[in-house]
């Protein structure tokens, strides 16, 4: 019984998303991961006029047995530089995925809310304190970093030769590429401070 309500509901929501306008415009997508509707793969297109534009972000969506009375568990699989999303684990800080969840919300509401969150971060309620600090202190630095992450992990346009060069300097010293990128991003692409942190 318990599983039936969740599975039945997800089945209908899945169809709702597939038929939605947003899918027609390639803004959101869902795919089934297994046959019993307990796990899905979501995809969000980076919103226009943001550093995420042109990127495609993959999400892991786990449906609890108590769905829809409890929210789905969602995290970013694609690495992203955003104040409300952990740059390490992809965990999301969004009220509707926590205490503001309501049983009338759907997968579509969740995906659209996440897209809205990408377009309008809330640095005062951060998931990633380092990103949030950069966002508040240096908007341009944040924008460039987020855009670089989008190009690197989400298939977004444009590279950043300066950033690439700094990462190569660290990988030449034996640092793993992702680790090098996190360190540099965290220190506003200051190679010296990033190196210091990595080797201390």
């Amino acid at each position: 019984m318990a599983n039936n309500i969740a599975a039945q509901r997800i089945q209908r929501e899945f169809k709702e998303v597939i038929k939605s306008d947003e899918v027609a415009k390639c803004a959101i997508r869902v795919e089934l991961v297994n046959d019993n509707y307990t796990e899905l793969k979501g995809e969000i297109a980076g919103p226009p006029d943001t550093p995420y534009e042109g990127g495609n972000f993959v999400l892991e969506i786990k449906v609890p047995e108590t769905y829809p009375f409890n929210p789905p568990k969602v995290r970013f699989i694609t690495k992203i530089w955003h104040p409300n999303i952990s740059s390490v684990t992809g965990a999301i800080c969004l009220d509707i995925l926590r205490d503001q969840w309501a049983a009338a919300m759907t997968l579509r509401t969740v995906l659209l809310s996440l897209q809205a969150l990408m377009a309008a971060a809330e640095p005062d309620d951060p998931q990633d304190a380092v990103v949030a600090k950069q966002y508040k202190d240096d908007q341009e630095m944040f924008r460039l970093t987020a855009k670089h992450w989008t190009a690197k992990y989400a298939g977004g346009p444009g590279g950043n030769p300066d950033f690439e060069m700094k990462i190569r300097r660290l990988t030449d010293m034996g640092v793993e590429e992702d680790q090098a990128r996190v360190a540099l991003s965290s220190y506003n692409w200051d190679l010296e401070r990033a190196t210091e942190q990595l080797f201390s």
Binding site: N4, I5, Q8, R9, R12, P68, F69, A103, A104
Partner: peptide, 13 residues
């Protein structure tokens, strides 16, 4: 009684 055939908010039946 569900005279106006409103679907269930949770399972949509």
């Amino acid at each position: 009684p569900n005279i106006s055939h409103v679907p269930c908010l949770a399972c949509t039946d």
